[in-house]
Design a protein around this nucleic acid. Structure first.
Lengths: 220, 220
DNA sequence: ACTATCGGATAGTGAGACTATCTATAACAG
DNA sequence: CTGTTATAGATAGTCTCACTATCCGATAGT
């Protein structure tokens, strides 16, 4: 098929397809002439993946590009998984104060307690420490105490997610396995946050909505 | 203090402070002359909160503005909590196909199973359904099956988070309670994702790294 | 033959988040 | 009291990002 049909099939405008081609997120079609190319089902699937990463996963084009490079590259699965994980955490430039050092120590302690095998450079380390340091700087150090509960919950889910990717792709080939790993990692994060929002709404309805005292609705 | 010192104390550049003032995210200082104003500790704290929401929470200025409006406004706590929740989920414009309908039904089923009291308009509903629909469209429907596990985990955490905000702010006044709710909701999301990344790295190290067969490192 | 479409290159657009400049002041050091 | 620096507020400029639009000389299909 040519670009017009690819556009119709994928719901992505022709200019956007050209843009993704330029950015190397979509492989070029098979050339059939000096100014003609042929696209296949793979291109349709890839385009859908691109839009999923951008729209649902909330990745930037640059982040999606790196993730897709890992999918296409000849890297082992765990490395592609790492690329996807890097893409979902925001790591702002960090200041180095007392709160930061303390936060890093807390994260190190957690990792040791749980026996997690994570490298020193794992972006989750920095990101988690950043949040803890920020809690402390804002005067909410107690929010950081829930970190063990968070970690226990994530450990369970992560084990299941990784298993799911492996079992669901047995025999599907490397490319498909990597695609699944990346999809699950990126979109799974969005799913998690969405469910957390609902769970919080429920929790606050139970703890506040059902209580007619309006304890916190006015200045005390 | 004047704007220069406020800048030094908060680590935010003077032009940026002026920008936040213009956007209404930072209240104006007390005027002491036609071109002089005085800022206090509240301004320093607010500025830190703004940067936390933007840098650590990953919110856009527009989203942060809405959250802060809820903090300042005379709304009940659960409503401010709702504003913060709205800010952390991305809700792209949705298509209406078979996958979308099925996904919505699955989310409705989940909500019913868990007895969650969430409104029809809760953004988490749409966001969760979007992810499930995308899984299906990409050919990974099995990833959606973990939704009950995700939900159970989030239910536990959310209950603890909401409790933590309430108990930690007893007597602190409405403003402080709302600030805590917002901070915990927004930054907690980042913390969760950071820990998930580490947990996944650990899980894949256990399931793949320890296995020397390199099962997925080459095309099969 | 003729019109719609194509691939590819280049340039333009609109939103978002600042950043710079300008204009009167006002504070302060010598 | 005078020169330097800082200030509030307004307006305009910048830079990045993620597209869009426009051209061009070929095809493709009728």
């Amino acid at each position: 098929m040519r670009v017009g049909e690819l556009s119709r099939r994928s719901g992505v405008s022709v200019p956007s397809i050209k843009y993704y081609l330029r950015e190397g997120m979509l492989p070029a079609g098979e050339r059939t002439g000096p100014n003609q190319a042929d696209y296949g089902e793979d291109h349709v699937r890839r385009l859908r993946l691109v839009r999923a990463l951008l729209d649902v996963g909330g990745l930037s084009v640059a982040a999606a590009k790196e993730v897709l490079a890992a999918v296409d590259g000849d890297v082992p699965l765990y490395e592609a998984l790492g690329a996807a994980q890097d893409a979902v955490v925001t790591v702002p430039g960090g200041v180095s104060d007392e709160a930061a050092a303390e936060a890093r120590a807390k994260v190190d302690g957690l990792v040791a307690r749980r026996g997690w095998r994570v490298t020193e450079a794992n972006p989750g380390r920095r990101a988690a420490a950043d949040v803890l340091a920020t809690y402390a700087r804002l005067g909410w150090p107690q929010f950081g105490e829930a970190i063990d509960d968070y970690a226990a919950a994530m450990e369970q889910l992560a084990a299941r997610e990784v298993e799911s990717v492996l079992s669901g792709t047995d025999g599907g080939g490397r490319e498909r396995a990597v695609e699944g790993a990346v999809t699950g990692t990126v979109l799974g994060g969005s799913l998690l946050l969405a469910l957390r929002v609902m769970a919080q709404a429920d929790a606050s309805a139970r703890l506040l909505g059902a209580d007619p005292s309006d304890k916190f609705t006015t200045d005390s």
